Amino acid sequence: MEFEFNEEQKMIASSARDIAKDFPPEYWREKDEKGEFAEEFWKALSDAGFTGIVIPEEYGGAGMGMTELLIAIEELCANGCGMAGNWYLVLTEVFGGMTIVRHGTEEQKEKYLPGIAKGELEFCMALTEPDAGTNTLSIKTRAEKDGDEWVINGNKIFISGADRAKGMLIVARTTPREKAEKKTHGITLFLADLPDPAVKVNPIPKHGINYSKTCEVSINNLRLPESALVPPLDGGWYNLLDTLNPERMCFTTAAIGIAKAAIKKAVEYSKQRKVFVDPVGSYQGLQFPLAEAYATLETARLMNFKASTLFDKNAPYREVGKYANMAKVVAVEAGLKAVYWAMQCFGGYGYAKEYDVERWWREINLIRLAPVTQQMALAYIGEYLLGMPKSYRT
């Protein structure tokens, strides 16, 4: 068991810190307020090869794994980029790149991976639906065969990046649930090129992360060729889990990075700001909660790297899921505590936009809810780690 990064991994961390220096908190404050996509940041990620970390070398990528992607994300998030350090990469490199690398056909790899690696082809994933939510097995989006084409109809919600993406991973039912031999049977993954007149996208106003749009998506008679199907037909559920586990790990890393950014800023302020006589950082009422949160974040970080290491070694999805879910639960609770007490450290200034902590508070609160709620992660731990009876119905 290794607890040190190798030289390649150290270089990735260093490169990420260098990129973050060019995109400090005030840059993201402006992008968030204006609701603008950070084109310059995306170009910097692409130029550094970060959009191709998990893409094999034969398709123009770096040929690395999930662990290296997490290293890059953590350093970006922790050094001032906040959620953006995760958000821009996960949409394209996980939903598009990772899915195609592990489960796509050779034709799909040749078509999509070089563009993803260069940062020329942004991706999104159309999974969540208004009536299904976390219960993916109850999705209603249908894909039906018509000659040598698939025709897809359905409505999706909270689809981030759909307004810009040139590629979309669509999760649809090819066998109705009531006709499926078991509830996990009948789900299939498809790759669609955008824009397409059959796909309508409508951005949703939201609380934070406004440097990227999150959208409602309506799919009406979208016609795709047979080659758009990510095999196997009707067996996409297990391949989807191979996408959702990495997504979970990335958001866990985001929670850790955002919290560390907030702690760093609070510590710097706490040394300078004096109340009565002493600097506020000397008060245990502020010092202890931040110290405890930091210690817990470091613990979650190790658990998350265990999940990514297992993933990179092609461990079974459920084995990866054990550690990914535990890391997510711990990182989010510690991260929320860290940013809460960082804001408290600033007092009234913590509520002011110019100090950025309030934005990180808005960003980290999303991770309570997505990509899976804390409660569903706990349900997974209760059932699959502790062996307790299933606590919900699907």
Rank of each mutant, 00 (worst) to 15 (best):
P24I: 13
R29T: 14
D32E: 04
E33D: 02
E57I: 13
G63D: 00
M64C: 01
G65V: 14
E74D: 01
M83R: 07
M98R: 10
V101I: 10
Q108Y: 07
G115P: 09
L121G: 02
D131A: 13
A132I: 12
S138L: 15
K140F: 09
D148I: 11
A165N: 12
M168G: 00
T175L: 15
E178F: 11
E178Y: 08
K179L: 10
K179Y: 05
K182C: 07
G186M: 06
F190A: 05
L191I: 15
L194I: 13
I204H: 11
H207T: 13
E216L: 14
L224K: 08
G235F: 07
G236K: 07
N239I: 14
L244A: 08
V267H: 05
V277N: 06
Q287C: 02
P289M: 06
Y294D: 13
T296P: 05
L297C: 09
R301E: 01
A307W: 01
D312R: 08
Y340E: 01
Q344L: 12
C345F: 01
Y349Q: 11
Y351T: 05
E354L: 14
D356Q: 06
R359K: 14
Q375N: 05
A377W: 10
Y380S: 03
E383P: 08
L386T: 08
G387R: 11
S391W: 06
T394R: 11
